[in-house]
Amino acid sequence: MAAMLTIKDLVVDFKTRAGNARVLNHVSLELMNGEILGIVGESGCGKSMTALSVMGLVPSPPGNVTGGSISLEGEELTTASGKRMREIRGGIISMIFQEPMTSLNPVFKVGDQIAECVLLHENVTKAQAWQRAVEMLTKVGIPEPEMRASSYPHELSGGMRQRVMIAMALSCHPRVLIADEPTTALDVTVQAQIFDLLKDLQKDTGTAIIMITHDMGAIAELADRVAVMYAGHIIESGPTNEILTNPQHPYTRGLIACVPHLEEDPSEIRPYLSEIKGVVPSLTDLGKGCAFADRCAYKTPVCEEEQPLIEAIAEGHSVACYNVKYVVAV
């Protein structure tokens, strides 16, 4: 399968009063044609910043892409002109956000908002664009789409709004869809509906999806491959089932173990949850060693010397840790 989007050694710095914060530190990722790639990590790990870099939306100042490349089927995006980026955004790569209420304009009908996107990218009349909006609303499973297109965002429920966002994002048949925590603000039953919808649309249109989340459950549900981020680094990546059943990096293990998973057959005895001790380090004073070293139970002297590079340990499974073999043995 060919790579749709290739991110290589991407570095993004933010100038802050406390000093330079390296929010993305040599991030390399590949998004294949028609796959769903999950990016998982805690707040501040750089997962949303990766998405914004691809969209060319890193807030600047204070942010700056200081190194690396993002290539969309061979076309370099980090140096693309503003005009070209506007064509790409919404046309070839589009994005859906976490909070569907704040990302829709409250004073326009949802149909107009979808039509605006179509008018911008394609040579169509207003009536055709509106027709497309209605079509898209039908596609994402909104009942009575003709009527709903004339609704304002506040007249819709959270799940409906997120469907509108998805309809808007897909209205120009993008090749890549970036979903940044698309279901975090929604109830589980609605979340399940949105997951089903994304899966179905992905199957129909073949759009490649980058799914950003903090929820390993969402990853298990949707993603084909997953990349785990910590403090601006990708510390582990691989096929979803492999990462879930055979995580190698101590942080990935901690992340999976610290969540109370819903059991169908819960036991009487409830052990305390395993914790990842300590807190996420401040990005302005990262030492030269592994960013996770201070919280790691397997730390060795070399971990404090240099950030480990991410290396393949099996087919498609890469880890950035000096002590992989040791972790495996435990």
């Binding site: 589980v188 039953t189 399940a192 929820d215 298990a220 549900e221 979803t240 879930l244 998973h261 819903l262």
Partner: peptide, 13 residues
Amino acid sequence: KALLSAVPKARAR
């Protein structure tokens, strides 16, 4: 039952 089944399970599919 529906609520429980809607929760994504963090395990291999």
